[in-house]
Design a protein around this nucleic acid. Structure first.
Lengths: 109, 109
DNA sequence: ATATTAGGTTACGAAAGGTAACAAAAAGAT
DNA sequence: ATCTTTTTGTTACCTTTCGTAACCTAATAT
């Protein structure tokens, strides 16, 4: 017995956000274009996984990758319109987390 | 070099939603308390994973499990206040998916 | 005794995640 | 010319999580 009247668009969206790190990377990029090492410094993610996620995000049309052939090469990632449109979701998650998530230490943020 | 000024509550929230199936299960339960088999019928998830996720959701305080000792046993899962408070997030994801996700087939939903 | 039904659990191979060492490319130093 | 440094990855290797299918339990019905 299997009846999936689930909206495929919604399911797809959930799959994207429901992938480890993706939401946090988007949050990081919401504050503006950033280079690889900056994103990495802001999150407890390994280089391997960050590369992987950024590649996926490019393929999904959430972010763009730009290479600047400078001194040591500079690579910047920037959210597309589609990516920036995720901001309300991230903000709602922030609100919810603030109101409902308990953390041992007194980390009020 | 690692500088994580990331809010732990936010990170925790992201970890919860950023886990496969969790978002879709919450969406399913937003329409009211449901028994195990109903949830399973509404999603392409295996019984094993559904059990696992529901257990995690109980531990996180997102849902409760009630056993009714009837004919064949009936087990119902229901969102807590904390769980119901996720509704705005789910709605935002629905909106975003509707506006931005493209699907091959003409599944407008 | 056997079958049925709901809600799981177990075993096992496949896929994804995490860590750490290594690589490419290009400028600058020796 | 060779060596070093910097940034952005990549590879090898091991652990954890997923996914499928078979099996289990308890209570009734046949």
């Amino acid at each position: 017995m299997s009846e999936f009247q689930l909206c495929p668009k919604f399911e797809k969206g959930m799959q994207m956000l429901g992938k480890r790190w993706t939401g946090l990377i988007i949050n990081q990029l919401l504050s503006g274009p950033q280079r690889f090492s900056q994103i990495k410094a802001g999150l407890p993610i390994s280089g391997k996984l960050l590369t992987e996620r950024l590649k996926e995000m490019e393929e999904e049309g959430l972010a763009t990758r730009k290479v600047y052939a400078e001194m040591p090469v500079r690579v910047e990632y920037e959210l597309t319109e589609k990516g920036k449109a995720l901001e309300p979701i991230v903000k709602e998650i922030e609100k919810w987390a603030h109101d409902w998530v308990e953390i041992k230490e007194k980390d009020d943020c």
